[in-house]
């Protein structure tokens, strides 16, 4: 195992709160693969995502590394980590149109308003939302919002995907659809995924390794 190999490598990660160990983890996630972290609510499983993404509240102490394709994310400020995150709420920016929400995420090196707009519209087209570009996000259905949130994350060219119970608020049929959409997309883009959930079905659909934490808490 070398430091330069592909995918996400969580090395000796340990997160404590007030001297109590919440998480201790050493894991690898290959590009396109999913690591599922399961645990009851309040077990602190989301702290792992906060640690990788770079927004862990200072009351927690954490050590260890999170390397993606050899780059140590923990050495970078959050905005340079390019950790795409999806929450159970789509969190579309309410002051921007649907297309502007997606365009907001496109990296700076894509120059020109019309080019960025074209990228955003193409991304929306891929999930069947081409006609919704100019809409107010508040007028979309739950499933539509979830798809926009996914595409917003993907066009930002993330290094990896962090999923914080992203399917738990969707109804049963939508949930299955969104699961396969997200995992297919991640696999197609070769993104390592960390999924935090308390839903066994999520873990089964993800198909990768599964870590359980806080069962005794």
């Amino acid at each position: 195992m070398t430091a330069m190999h592909k995918g996400l490598w969580l090395r000796d990660v340990a997160i404590d709160l007030a001297g109590v160990r919440l998480i201790a983890l050493d894991a690898e996630v290959a590009p396109g693969a999913v690591l599922t972290v399961m645990g009851p609510s309040g077990s602190g499983k989301s702290t792992l995502l906060a640690f990788i993404g770079g927004f862990l509240d200072p009351v927690f102490t954490a050590r260890g590394e999170a390397r993606v394709d050899g780059v140590d994310l923990t050495a970078l400020p959050a905005e340079e980590r390019r950790a795409g995150i999806l929450f159970q709420d789509p969190l579309l920016f309410p002051h921007l149109s649907v297309a502007a929400n997606v365009a907001f995420a496109i990296p700076r090196h894509e120059k020109g308003r019309s080019r960025r707009r074209a990228i955003a519209e193409a991304a929306l087209g891929e999930v069947g939302l081409a006609d919704f570009a100019a809409r107010d996000p508040a007028t979309l259905s739950g499933g539509q919002k979830a798809r926009v949130a996914l595409m917003r994350t993907l066009v930002s060219h993330p290094r990896l995907l962090l999923l914080d119970e992203p399917f738990s608020k969707l109804d049963a049929t939508l949930r299955g659809h969104m699961r396969s959409l997200v995992f297919d997309r991640a696999r197609a883009a070769g993104l390592p995924v960390v999924l935090v959930t308390h839903d066994k079905a999520d873990a089964e659909a993800a198909g990768g390794a599964c870590v359980r934490i806080g069962d005794d808490a």
């Binding site: 950790a83 929450f87 994350t153």
Partner: peptide, 16 residues
Amino acid sequence: FDPRYAVVASGLGLSR
């Protein structure tokens, strides 16, 4: 204000 908006935005590469 929901802090997750800021988390999402910073995941998209936005500075503070």
